[in-house]
Design a binder for these strands. Structure first.
Lengths: 346, 346
DNA sequence: CTGAAAGCGCTTACAG
DNA sequence: CTGAAAGCGCTTACAG
């Protein structure tokens, strides 16, 4: 218990010597206690306790050609959206006995190459991508690593591995249809960054809802943002600068952060929400519940996305299952207080 | 470039054969290109490219007894406070050529034991603790792993390794002194969870400021919270339930999340801030800037905390430096809009 | 049920 | 500057 030498010095040979058996038997006892005799098991376990022995991971990995480790690549760990997804992933991965390395991209291409190397060098047995693209290293891509891959949250079109996502287009359409149902006729869309797949899908749903309602699409109502609070606030200024007659009465933002930025800036300009203007977001981040008014938004089953993706990866890493299909989860609209009847019809 | 076999099958022997040298020379070329002849270097590098060879990490780690990997243990990755600290850590660790594993505790003791195992099994060369305590596994503690440890953010009293923190007590005292300077006489404190070191220090600073101002400490003004938004909102109800004559006119919260929860709930109850009541937080999380009014708060140099801690750990992992001293960084008060003159003296 | 031996893929003294 | 050989600490057929 007390004067234990540092791990580095205790090897399986030490335990074998102390318990009077071979290294092979120590190894077996630790891996499969029930296949040795009770007496052997007792002596080995005691020696393990006495020495504080822990198997060396490098030696084991080298021999077994397996690291019992998965890597999840997050685009930006500062984005609170991913925390709950990570929890779901972690639960699934841990339950299967694997460790989880969280890799934060943070818009750094060095890191991207580093994660490819991590995979190619055999340090992880599988990779879960939350970043919407396949990692590229110098002269090699993640796919060259030969480990199973699963993508979640941001779909990667045409990828040859399973993906877990929500129906972004359908959920966006439902959100905008809700505004239509409240009597809004002029509805704006606040976009994510150009080229982002989530934005593309949500925009498609926005347009589909308008078309379904028989409205014309007005390009001026499609305001460009980049998922940050700041562009949300800027969008409020854009909307307020429009002549009253053609100013939208509602806005659907491609994520909550922008919706909240819009909300704050609009309120600061004395626009009452939802009396004068309605706002709907996307994601249902924690803070959307604490806004005044609370934000009407699309709720993503974040933990489940993670859990499903984690389980898929585990199956692939264990060599089980062939080509797993992709999974599309439901993302219901949470009707809260930021969206109300259109001013004209109230 | 194209038909590359999966990494697992290409070994240093393959590269050696293809380039007509020994495995030892391939190893040297990759580790120290300048010590081989130019001709050798060219042939080896070409063979590396042709085969898509990447050294096997397990074999290298086993031989070198080093994993070139650090572990940072975060109490809860959902807490946005840590994102910027992690960025600082990552920058320092990466710059030294080490990889970084982010371990999320998430209040799960299984994970704690798993991280101890990770360290004891030789998979990491050093550990950075942001969780305020030394990890315990089953029958072994992190300290038994024999790898260097550094703590940051939450100090671990009496620990034998270097720590990086801010002067929580002094910063809290300055925050409360600011309220005193604005004429407030009845100032409440909203605490963190019982036993938390950050709470203890910040409470100490709160009391010191009151004592320095010649005020009496009133236990009823010390409201207990747990760092969450929700307890902040509850505290507003507690304060509002006090008789007007003895109700505090200002509150210092031990973190921003609670300060914002308080702010929202107080405003929902028609308390005007800062006209009727002043609020000061601690941390300067991103959202504190987006509140209405913007939150007066203590700004922690989060990125620098991470960078300094990361560099300390690198030094220890590289075997350099003896007993590094602990570091205490400055945390200035950001005077924004949520704290104003006390109602009585306005 | 257990042991002796091979081998996982590297790196590094040791010679030359 | 380069190669042959040992060895890092495990696990696992192969025998018995």
């Amino acid at each position: 218990m007390s004067a234990r030498r540092p791990q580095s010095s205790v090897t399986i040979a030490d335990v074998a010597r102390l318990s009077g058996v071979s290294a092979a038997t120590v190894s077996r006892t630790l891996a499969n206690p029930e296949i040795v005799t009770e007496a052997t098991r007792g002596r080995v376990m005691q020696a393990v306790r006495d020495t504080g022995y822990t198997p060396n991971a490098a030696a084991r990995n080298l021999r077994q050609r397996k690291a019992m480790m998965a890597l999840v690549v997050v685009p930006d760990i500062a984005n609170p959206f991913f925390a709950e997804v990570l929890r779901g992933i972690d639960a699934a991965i841990s339950a299967a006995g694997y460790g989880l390395i969280i890799g934060n991209l943070g818009n750094d291409s060095e890191k991207e190459a580093a994660f490819v190397e991590l995979s190619r060098s055999g340090q992880v047995d599988g990779v879960l991508l939350l970043c919407g693209h396949i990692l590229k290293g110098r002269g090699a891509s993640l796919e060259d690593a030969g480990v199973p891959i699963v993508a979640a949250c941001e779909a990667i079109p045409g990828a040859a591995f399973p993906q877990v996502e929500i129906d972004n287009c359908g959920a966006a359409q439902a959100a905008v249809a809700h505004l239509v149902g409240l009597g809004h006729r002029r509805i704006a869309y606040l976009s994510g960054p150009a080229g982002n797949i989530l934005d593309a899908e949500r925009c498609r749903g926005y347009r589909a809802a308008l078309v379904a309602a028989g409205f014309e699409l007005n390009p001026r109502y499609e305001i460009s943002g980049d998922f940050t609070f700041q562009t949300g606030a800027e969008a409020a200024r854009v909307v307020l600068a429009m002549p009253a007659a053609e100013r939208p009465t509602a806005l659907f933002a491609a994520n909550d952060e922008m919706a909240i930025g819009f909300l704050k800036a609009a309120q600061a300009a004395d626009l009452a929400i939802p009396r004068d203007f309605s706002v709907v977001g996307f994601d249902a981040i924690e803070y959307a519940e604490y806004c005044i008014p609370t934000l009407t938004t699309v709720s993503q089953p974040r933990r489940e996305i993670g859990a499903v993706a984690g389980r898929l990866l585990v199956k692939l890493m264990s060599g089980g299952g062939g080509l797993e299909a992709s999974v599309v989860l439901k993302a219901p609209l949470l009707r809260r207080d930021s969206a109300g009847p259109a001013p004209a019809v109230r």
